Lab assay of single mutants.
Amino acid sequence: MAAAAAAGAGPEMVRGQVFDVGPRYTNLSYIGEGAYGMVCSAYDNVNKVRVAIKKISPFEHQTYCQRTLREIKILLRFRHENIIGINDIIRAPTIEQMKDVYIVQDLMETDLYKLLKTQHLSNDHICYFLYQILRGLKYIHSANVLHRDLKPSNLLLNTTCDLKICDFGLARVADPDHDHTGFLTEYVATRWYRAPEIMLNSKGYTKSIDIWSVGCILAEMLSNRPIFPGKHYLDQLNHILGILGSPSQEDLNCIINLKARNYLLSLPHKNKVPWNRLFPNADSKALDLLDKMLTFNPHKRIEVEQALAHPYLEQYYDPSDEPIAEAPFKFDMELDDLPKEKLKELIFEETARFQPGYRS
């Protein structure tokens, strides 16, 4: 834990890192770190609560700039109880001085990944967590956004079992017609939660990839272990087919990539493993919904509104309290091709509203 900075004593240090967030945020305490930044909790002297502050230093890398800009653009436009918001952003007053960006968010005690390492969940908890994931996802999908990296560590939890989806750095506007060349190379989302079509096709992607990830998360809540822990690309596919069985001819016809289709045709026939054999203690309604989410063919996979209306979630289902976005989200430009200098300018502009004396 960093010592509390005395008023006016300059930035606090946390594990050798400068955290320049005073005077409003003090009493910093280390939480963890990701690929390009550290997260601390801090005391907000204005709202009198502890908050989470993520320090991001992305400006050396085009990919990190892209992810940072995506996350900020999306989260500043989203407003939903099951999606983490941005409360404040701290950065230098000029673009030349801006080396880091500090993002202030609600402090959540833990995440689903940490929880599943230590606790076996009751059916009631599984049901409530799944409902909140789908409630947040309904809003995301209504904005025409794909999260693309749903996994237990991106689901934040607090002691009252509130759940918030975080990390929109890989999110995209849904565009089933656009052929994202190089899709697989830039697709760094965790393999275990990846839909089979991501490994088999490169053309376009749809909201059904997020539903697949939610199915993987439900299976993990039922058993405290990942359902498809593939060691590499082909191993991942083999794990999936080992449980779902061989795809039907109709399902194979959806695979545009001939090499991928021929690979699947070359494999020995596998039978589907019954879900109640894998999860003998699970609620039968939970397994019915799991089956509809972990469907090989993305066109037959359940959609988020149908999933919310499934009998497993009937005690929570309330369409009048499951809000959607006001308007579909649009990125003005494809960020993939922009140089990091341009992305830095866009991050600077996007964060201006939090600067003292800002006038829109």
Rank of each mutant, 00 (worst) to 15 (best):
A5K: 10
P11M: 14
M13Y: 14
G22I: 09
P23D: 01
T26D: 08
S29Y: 02
Y36E: 07
S41A: 08
Y43D: 05
K48N: 15
A52G: 01
I56F: 15
S57F: 11
Q62Y: 07
T63W: 13
Y64S: 10
C65G: 02
C65R: 08
Q66P: 08
T68C: 01
L69M: 15
L69R: 01
R70Y: 02
R70Q: 07
E71W: 00
E71F: 02
E71V: 14
K73V: 13
I74M: 04
I74C: 09
I74F: 15
L75R: 01
N87W: 01
P93Q: 15
Q97Y: 08
M98R: 06
D106N: 13
D106Y: 14
L107W: 04
M108K: 15
D111F: 02
Y113F: 14
L115N: 01
L115F: 03
L116R: 03
Q119K: 09
H120K: 11
F129P: 01
Q132E: 10
Q132P: 08
I140A: 11
H141M: 11
H141A: 05
A143H: 06
N144G: 05
L146Q: 14
H147P: 05
H147Q: 15
K151N: 12
L155C: 02
T160R: 13
T160S: 15
L163E: 03
I165L: 12
D167Y: 15
F168N: 02
R172Q: 14
D175I: 04
D179H: 09
H180A: 07
T181Y: 09
T181D: 08
G182H: 13
T185Q: 12
E186L: 09
A195H: 00
A195W: 04
I198G: 02
M199K: 15
N201H: 10
Y205W: 08
S208F: 07
S208A: 14
I209D: 09
D210Q: 11
C216Q: 12
I217K: 07
L218K: 07
S223D: 12
S223M: 12
R225G: 05
H239P: 11
I243N: 10
S246L: 02
C254D: 08
L267M: 15
L278C: 03
K285V: 07
L287H: 08
M293Y: 03
T295W: 07
F296A: 05
N297P: 01
P298L: 09
H299T: 13
K300I: 06
R301T: 07
R301F: 01
E303F: 01
A307V: 04
A307E: 01
L308G: 06
P311K: 05
Y312V: 08
E314N: 00
E314V: 13
S320E: 10
S320T: 13
E326W: 09
F329S: 13
D332G: 10
D337S: 02
K340G: 14
E341C: 03
L343R: 06
I347K: 13
T351N: 11
Q355R: 06
P356Q: 05
Y358S: 11
S360R: 14
S360W: 10
